[in-house]
Simulated scan of single mutants.
Amino acid sequence: MRQDVHFVTLSTPDLDAARRFYVNGLEWHPLLDVPGEILFFQIAPGLVLGLFDAKSFSQDVRGAGPVAATGVTLAHNVDSPEAVVDLVDRFTGAGGNVVVPPEPGAFGGVFHAIVRDPNGVLWEIAHNPGWLVADDGTVSFS
Rank of each mutant, 00 (worst) to 15 (best):
S11D: 14
P13E: 08
D14R: 09
D14V: 00
D16A: 11
D16E: 14
D16V: 15
A17Q: 09
R20S: 15
R20P: 07
R20Q: 15
F21Q: 02
F21S: 05
Y22K: 02
N24L: 04
G25D: 08
W28S: 00
H29W: 01
L31P: 02
L31H: 06
L32C: 02
P35T: 07
G36T: 03
G36F: 08
F41C: 00
A44H: 01
A44W: 01
P45K: 04
V48E: 02
L49P: 01
L49K: 09
F52T: 00
F52Y: 10
A54W: 12
A54K: 15
K55D: 06
S58E: 13
V61G: 08
V61K: 04
R62Q: 15
R62A: 09
G63C: 11
A64S: 10
A64M: 14
A68P: 02
A69M: 08
T70S: 04
T73M: 05
A75H: 07
N77M: 13
N77I: 02
D79W: 04
D89S: 15
D89F: 00
R90D: 12
F91K: 07
T92C: 13
G93P: 12
A94G: 05
G95H: 15
G96R: 12
N97D: 07
V99G: 02
V99N: 05
V100N: 13
P101G: 01
P101I: 03
P102D: 11
E103P: 03
G105P: 14
G109E: 04
H112F: 07
H112G: 08
A113V: 06
I114S: 07
V115T: 04
V115A: 03
P118E: 05
P118C: 12
V121W: 10
E124W: 01
A126C: 15
H127A: 03
P129K: 09
W131S: 06
W131V: 05
V133K: 01
D135S: 11
T138W: 03
